[in-house]
Amino acid sequence: MTRALFAAALAFASAAANAAFDEAELMRQLAATTEVQSAYTERKTSPLLAAPLDNSGTLTYRRPNVIEKNVASPRREKLRILADEVVVERNGQERRIAIASQPTLAAFAASLRGVLSGDSAVLRKYFKLRVSGAEEAWSLELVPIDAAVSRYVERVVVEGRGGRVGRIETFEVSGDRTVLELR
């Protein structure tokens, strides 16, 4: 009896500790960051690949709507996510794709923008959100809602510390995985 009471008290205490750093708090802290410019490395692993694919460069975010991924290696490429289109620049050529034309692209853009700007409304349009951990090491799991997205993307796990995003890992249904780390 006492043991059961003790266990319940413990569970309550840990829940209360978690509640101190919840989704609202995470979003508040993320939103406080107005500009990010940092080097990143990205690694793609796939059952189809003998060795992982790496690329690196800088990721830029400026409030409210600028997101740029400048790939420096293995070759130069620039990916810009605008309000309603994604612009890919490579070899001096520019390709524009309307975000709305593909649900998966829309979800991808929303996940980056929502996380970097701390906009939970944008995230919730496409994902179920689950926050765990504490302020110095939090984790945000995004699970797609729409079947058109969940056919391809299993989940996205974002990790960070305070208002800074440190790692974004995408799990695809195909078994492919992409890890993006910010320094």
Partner: peptide, 18 residues
Amino acid sequence: RLDELSSPVALPTRALLP
């Protein structure tokens, strides 16, 4: 195809790649 593999644009065609 390799380029597309790391791009979010080509996700839907990934399953048929092999």
